[in-house]
Design a protein around this nucleic acid. Sequence first.
DNA 1: CCGGCGGTTAAACATTTGTTTAATCTGCTC
DNA 2: GAGCAGATTAAACAAATGTTTAACCGCCGG
Lengths: 215, 215
Amino acid sequence: MAEHVDNGDTRQRVLEAAGEVFAEKGFEKATIREIVERAGANLNAVNYYFRDKKGLYFALFEEANERACRSEQDAFEQMRALPPEQRLRAHLRHMFRHLVLCRRMPWQARLMAREMIEPTWMLDVLVKQFIRPRFEGLACIVRDLMPAGTSDLTVRLCTESIVAQVVHMAHARGVINQLVPELKYDADGVEAMVEHVAMFSLAAVRNLASEERSL
Amino acid sequence: MAEHVDNGDTRQRVLEAAGEVFAEKGFEKATIREIVERAGANLNAVNYYFRDKKGLYFALFEEANERACRSEQDAFEQMRALPPEQRLRAHLRHMFRHLVLCRRMPWQARLMAREMIEPTWMLDVLVKQFIRPRFEGLACIVRDLMPAGTSDLTVRLCTESIVAQVVHMAHARGVINQLVPELKYDADGVEAMVEHVAMFSLAAVRNLASEERSL
DNA sequence: CCGGCGGTTAAACATTTGTTTAATCTGCTC
DNA sequence: GAGCAGATTAAACAAATGTTTAACCGCCGG
């Protein structure tokens, strides 16, 4: 009687609202009621379209994963021919832009951060589907940057060190703003982050062998 | 009538049980009922001694913060005389042990991680009281490791890169377990983390200048 | 002895929240 | 227009959980 919007896109609206709310509140604290309210839908919409709260969460990840994969497809194509140093920079730039700027889906990054702090049952599928492919891609670049005989474990550890810098700088914004106030979280700031992490990490992986020797 | 323990240490028992439960479940998912059950206390104990659940949480934080500060006092005293390389290692070891092992309070890391995503009024005091002092201490070591003329901004960025590795490895355990399964989260694993981060970061800060030149 | 007082217990309360059920509406087909 | 299927709404339900209230117990000073 009241409104009965019926634009036929209720499912999609719920999905988008869920993205925002889950990112802001986390899985536990996010409530179905707030999601459907933001979506302008009825309380039952979630259970109707996604069976239950978990189903909604899962559907959200699937959709985000699809979209991210498409957006990366061509970005990675262009990198393939570059020398590893440039490829590392391009990779870093892509990650930082996606995590720091990206007004399109600001909730994706936060969702991941959340899963790391408070892992839900989703973490396994998240790693398998989303994180590992990107990790392996970066690991290939790192391997190309290091001496021929470098062990696989060392390569993966170094890759993790690089990922760590990106993830931390992107999501510890509140702290870094106070500790390194010169670092702004805008387009120029992202470029500065890329430069720093690239230089720091290149210096590290290139000279790690000699560091080991001098032990 | 049933038991009426009345050992007079109910408050302390609740505090310790709360540490365990908060660490295992996180703030939201931890329930007062489970805490008091483990403590062998009554449901009302939390509200009686700490006003409410938040009060208990913050009391726990204050107590842990005090304890951590005391435990660092002498640890840092011993480092002062060491050469910067050894001091970095000692610092890293201290951080990793505190974040990864240390059954007492792994929940501190969680509180911080949460504050970074969802800053509340706690973040400012947390940075001022807890994070910044440690950051500055590490920055001093980094400065000693780098060439004389290195800019302050560069030193702080490098410090942040080191912090990033520690924080990330400590709190993305669920992901790293799958990406670098060789890295165990026990005493030996911590030693391996210290070694890797030390080598990676030493190679980085020592050779950053030459990396800049070769740009 | 006893009256209060801090600590403890037990029960009730209020609220939130995910889920289910049934009613209502819309658009389409026959 | 009748009817049906899917979509949407509204209301009820059940469980969990933080909080509050009141009763209970042991002790100690008067």
